[in-house]
Write a protein that binds this DNA or RNA. Structure first.
Lengths: 221, 221
DNA sequence: AGTTCAAAAATTATCTATAATTTCACACGA
DNA sequence: TCGTGTGAAATTATAGATAATTTTTGAACT
């Protein structure tokens, strides 16, 4: 693991990001710098820097003098992230397509299979993210890719909030259609499918803290 | 000015961002925390937080233990930003269009006129940014808008690097075409024009530090 | 019971000090 | 001349201490 090379602030921000995404920390809850510092056995200076990174990723909200809290989200933000992903992933795919090799498409197919076999959301999400990253990375546009990464983090958060425990296996036809179009060199068809794919918003009833049930929404692609 | 309400870190990051964008600090040059701290009469703790913000905006690059330097850029990044802006501004405009009022379009027209009258790049850039912000803000998608803001900052930087001094007045036909389409309720036509508009990359010979001339590129829209 | 206010506690933001690492200059040897 | 190593200086990263602000608590009052 490369975390030894990272600065403490980076290590903390990664760990906190993971907890926020997985839902281990509730949306809206406060992040107290001294508590975090104590947990990680550091002073609060690197903790504050970690907070700034989380803020930039949209995972936390900071108000001056009033601390940092985990960002909360609603259906509107799910839609927003879905549309941004559609726009940017389509752009990335158009640029990546000319550089895609048979070997990359092979790995992407394996990722799809791994997703189909996943018994829990977490491993499904990982396989899904791998698929998207594989076919988009060759675009060689670092700023675009890092923006997409942040959007994937947000997506994962929505997903885990809705499908924390129950998860039923389903085969991803979209991924297969995208791969097939790419193999045939039909970039536009692949891009169109991808654009639709990441805008598909799933819906699921979940129990709230107060015991009632409401609908949760998430991007399932 | 609301800067009194901001935290020191925010004040510093805004000021440094301004200098980086305007070209007052050279791309690639180091930002030394103690020097900045001394200049702003603070300790380096808020300075480090400011650095994290600049990093997130893509204006600075930080390497662990090796400090922070102003991000450098090349034609590839100009193109990347232009394409991202095209994708995201078109998305924003589609959502904003239904909420645009005659009053907003009127202000946007004034901004266009102000741009046409500008004698220097800086005021042209400000007018241009105002135009884009006016017609996009009503989309009510905060994450999207803040990503677009960061891209505009990058665009401005490219622009100032190329047109630092000489700037010739030119009337912006694209802006007028966009406004006219919006007034007629023809959102798709407006979006298409906007998408082309922000991808128009201008070219200009500039003198390098070594006295030679090379071509500089920038987004002019 | 509900409000209001003030003091106490907790928390954020910043400063000063220290440890760890990197950069730089300069000498030395191939 | 060029590379290479070594020590000093500069710089980054973190810790510990302090000031300023916000939140909480609880008592007095309506």
């Amino acid at each position: 693991m490369a975390s030894t090379e990272d600065t403490i602030a980076v290590r903390i921000s990664k760990e906190l990001a993971d907890r926020i995404i997985s839902g281990a920390i509730e949306p809206g809850s406060r992040l107290r710098q001294d508590h975090v510092a104590e947990e990680f056995n550091t002073s609060h200076v690197p903790v504050r820097e970690a907070f700034r990174r989380l803020e930039a990723q949209g995972l936390a909200i900071s108000e001056p003098r009033r601390g940092v809290r985990v960002a909360s989200f609603d259906l509107g933000e799910v839609r927003e992230v879905a549309e941004m992903r559609a726009a940017l992933e389509v752009l990335a795919l158009r640029h990546a397509a000319p550089h895609l090799t048979a070997s990359i498409l092979e790995k992407a197919e394996e990722a799809t299979k791994a997703g189909d076999k996943s018994r829990d959301v977490r491993s499904w999400e990982e396989a899904n993210r791998t698929f998207h990253r594989l076919i988009l990375s060759p675009c060689n546009m670092p700023r675009l890719l890092s923006t997409i990464d942040d959007l994937h983090a947000a997506s994962a958060r929505f997903l885990f909030a809705a499908w924390r425990s129950e998860w039923e296996t389903r085969t991803d036809q979209d991924h297969r259609a995208i791969l097939s179009a790419l193999r045939q060199g039909n970039t536009e068809s692949a891009a169109a499918t991808l654009g639709r794919h990441v805008q598909w918003i799933g819906q699921k009833p979940v129990k709230t803290a107060s015991g009632k049930t409401r609908d949760a929404f998430a991007i399932v692609g």
